[in-house]
Amino acid sequence: MSKPIHEIEVEILNPEGLHMRPAMQFVDLANSFDSDITVSHQDLTVDAKSIMQMTMLAATCGSRLRIQAVGADARQAIEALKRLVEQKFAGDSPVEAGEKEG
């Protein structure tokens, strides 16, 4: 029996792109699934469960990413990750602590 494979293409909609905090949200969510999950951007494919690798994608606003999950919960994983990206990583502030400080 081969494991189920699901994949989808998503577009990064955050103006700031996939910077570290949304990348961490993505990694946390990916880690809540048993499936093996990879993300591809152009010719680079990385492990969706590693923050170090996810930050290497340098996915700017408008980048298209292909997410692939392999495993029993592959479908749920893809749906959840898609939702996170489509919702622009809820809670991601538009500017990273860029306000004036005293």
């Binding site: 910077h19 570290m20 290497m56 994608l57 700017t60 500017v95 860029g98």
Partner: peptide
């Protein structure tokens, strides 16, 4: 800078690619 998010991502990518 706050107004060049793509440059920030490229800098982070360079750092992480090496720390990897």
């Amino acid at each position: 800078p706050t107004n060049k998010p793509d440059k920030h991502l490229q800098a982070m990518e360079t750092i992480f690619k090496n720390l990897q």
